[in-house]
């Protein structure tokens, strides 16, 4: 077995260090080494989006990133989305719109939706649907998720005014 490598990175603003097998994914490191189990593994092949995180400002599937690639990088996960116990407007809108049922895809969807609104504060419904197409949800039929995202976008635009 290959030797583990020492990795230093920033996760949700905090410096972290961990040892990673060269074949381990960033998702493995987040979940198993750093105890951040909010990012989920639904497929391990980048097809479901449940492991979505933001890596150096880019939305990625953490199952398609090697843990060793995180050396010196910034990672943002679902655990960093709320400020203390104050939920991000997206999180709040997901609750208000009943945009989750089992909740397993929810962390990944929220991280993706945040990346969407960071890049495009005023998306159309179609833009939101295509942006979020990499996040599978099997419970909701997406209806309430899209409504929650659009509503959060409107609220965030209001806050900026």
């Amino acid at each position: 077995m290959s030797k583990r490598q020492h990795i230093s990175a920033t996760v949700n603003g905090d410096p972290v260090e961990f040892l990673a097998e060269p074949g381990a994914t960033l998702l493995d490191a987040l979940r198993d080494d750093l105890g951040l189990t909010g990012s989920k593994e639904g497929c391990g092949s980048g097809d479901c989006g449940a492991c979505s995180v933001i890596l150096d400002g880019r939305l990625v599937c953490s199952c398609l990133v090697l843990a060793v690639e995180a050396e010196g990088r910034r990672v943002e996960t679902i655990e960093g989305m709320a400020e203390g116990s104050k939920l991000h407007p997206l999180q709040q809108k997901f609750l208000e719109h009943a945009a989750l049922q089992c909740g397993f895809c929810t962390p990944g969807l929220l991280v993706s939706a945040k990346a969407l609104l960071d890049a495009n504060p005023d998306p159309t419904e179609t833009e939101a649907r295509y942006w979020l197409a990499g996040n599978l949800c099997r419970c909701t039929g997406y209806d309430k998720i899209i409504r929650a995202v659009m509503d959060a976008a409107a609220e965030l635009r209001q806050e900026k005014v």
Partner: peptide, 23 residues
């Protein structure tokens, strides 16, 4: 009525523990 679900906050913050989350 349509109240916020009681397990909601844990599920939107990644705290909810699913089958693979326990160590």
């Amino acid at each position: 009525t349509r109240p916020v679900r009681p397990d909601g906050a844990d599920k939107v913050t990644g705290k909810a523990m699913y089958g693979a989350d326990l160590a």
